[in-house]
Design a protein around this nucleic acid. Structure first.
Length: 429
RNA sequence: GCUGGAGUCGUCUAGUGGCAAUGACAAGAGACUGUAAAUCUCUCGCGCUUCGCGCUUCGUAGGUUCGAGUCCUACCUCCAGCA
């Protein structure tokens, strides 16, 4: 596979902060023997690397599946693995509403609970909470009502960290505030509060780390290596390190001065990586990422939050130094019948596909394209069969995962520019 | 054959004298980016120069009325009950 056999000449030094040192590591090893992120190749701001998590490695750039409520909608975790996904991202807001972080902790953590035996992320819940209709924001945190039953909740930087700790994903996002509007003043205010909250997140995260890594170490790590009942080939990693990682979130909207300020602030903090938040369109994304990723330390991974519905997001994101992506778009659009092809998205429900017996995408090797025709998919959608959403989700998720994998390969082969040009000119023609 | 009921946009349906006529489904198209999304929006009698205008429509044919899907008469068809 790609990246294997490549010399790791630019491997950064391992992190040696106090909190990390307090954690337990396998006998005979030092913490620094297990760098969280290694870079195998650089190409301008772009890089090819590996994120090492307790549940296995993520070869980057990588597309992370959106598993908001601890499931990728319409797909089983086995299907996610088979279509090539390396990691999933769940959402703290949704999981504290149901089933609750205590229950997930009781279940052994997100990976064990969901049966996703690979790397996991959680988003802090900030994005969702600030999207709710009546949310009260104070310096302490955000008060909101459950959209399900009206129960009152308050989420603070500390509570988000604790809930993420209980949920037990490998990588946690700091609790950030989204701006009320696109104005510079609102963006700046939200950014500064996000920075103040980041400090509190870091403090709380260290307290939790110092507590000894709860469900990942108390009964033996609930990781691949400690799950002997699972088939060997189903395991992602073998390294049961009881660590959890914290990403700071860079804000600043469309304003590059704010982005730069936010990046500088986050860069100065003792965190393991960075989320880049509040990005809603690819327009101007290249300049913004150039600004941010030129400032962020290059030896820590960067996650572009919420972007990846449009293939150009993945190309631009990777080109300008982002390592991982997550987006609900591919699976949401799949459920709504909008399917990726190399020639752009098609709506499989359109009448013209009724008698199209060709595969959705002839050169695609996903389960959907290998076995079923456009006419069959059209039929399943028109008759509202559940399988329509399953097959479509397999294809769309496979598509973005594969495109991101191909971006990684092209960076390794020094063919990124050609790949980008040929892909985008065909897709957006 | 008698008695009662019913015929409305592809389908089911609202409508009990006042604007081509309600809702659902079907059909056609569009949207979707850290998932309140198995969701949402638009079109849906015909035509046009489409923020409007014209034409034709509620089983068929007449009638009453300024005006009828709606009231009256006949006929056709279907359903139920009785012969």
């Amino acid at each position: 596979m790609l990246g294997n056999g490549k010399s790791d000449t630019m491997c950064p030094k391992g992190h040696k902060d106090l909190a990390r040192a307090a954690r337990s590591v396998p006998e005979g090893h030092a913490v620094s023997d297990f760098p969280f992120f290694t870079i195998n190749k650089r190409c301008g701001l772009a890089r090819v690397g590996v994120i090492h998590t307790p549940h296995g490695d993520i070869k980057t750039p990588a597309f992370v599946g959106a598993a908001t409520r601890a499931t990728v909608k319409a797909l089983t975790m086995r299907q996610m693995r088979e279509l090539g996904s390396q990691a999933i991202l769940a959402n703290t807001y949704h999981l504290i509403l149901a089933p609750g972080s205590d229950l997930i902790e009781q279940a052994g953590g997100l990976a064990e609970f969901s049966s996703w035996h690979g790397p996991t992320f959680t988003d802090s819940g900030g994005f969702q909470i600030f999207s709710l209709p009546d949310v009260k924001i104070t310096e302490n945190g955000a008060k909101f009502k459950s959209h399900i039953n009206g129960d009152k909740f308050e989420m603070t930087p500390e509570s988000s960290m604790r809930d993420q700790w209980k949920i037990g994903a490998d990588i946690h996002m700091a609790f950030d505030q989204l701006a009320k509007s696109d104005s510079h003043a609102d963006m700046e205010a939200a950014m500064h509060r996000t920075h103040r909250w980041l400090d509190r997140c870091i403090t709380e995260h260290k307290v939790l780390l110092g507590a000894g890594g709860r469900n990942l170490s108390s009964e033996g790590p609930k990781t691949w290596a400690s799950a002997p009942e699972r088939p060997e080939e189903d395991r992602f990693g073998q390294d049961p390190r009881p660590e959890q990682y914290l990403y700071a979130v860079v804000q600043g909207g469309i304003f590059n001065d704010l982005r730069a300020e936010s990046a500088r602030y986050c860069a100065s903090k003792d965190v393991d990586g960075f989320g880049i938040g509040g990005v809603f369109t690819a327009d101007g994304m290249d300049e913004m990422l150039k600004t941010v990723n030129s400032i962020l330390p290059e030896n820590k991974p960067r996650h572009l939050l919420g972007m990846g519905q449009e293939p150009i997001d993945l190309f631009v994101g990777a080109e300008y130094g982002c390592d991982t992506f997550d987006c609900v778009g591919p699976t949401r659009m799949a459920r709504n019948g909008s399917l990726y092809t190399y020639d752009g998205r098609i709506n499989i429900k359109n009448a013209k596909y009724k008698t199209d017996f060709s595969p959705l995408m002839p050169d695609c090797d996903c389960e959907c394209c290998k076995n079923y025709s456009r006419a069959y998919l059209h039929h399943l959608f028109k008759t509202d069969e559940i399988t329509a959403k399953v097959l479509a989700s397999i294809h769309n998720e496979h598509f973005v995962v594969t495109v991101t994998d191909n971006i990684r390969k092209s960076l390794l082969n020094d063919t990124f520019e050609e790949y980008k040009k040929s892909f985008l000119s065909r897709y957006y023609k």
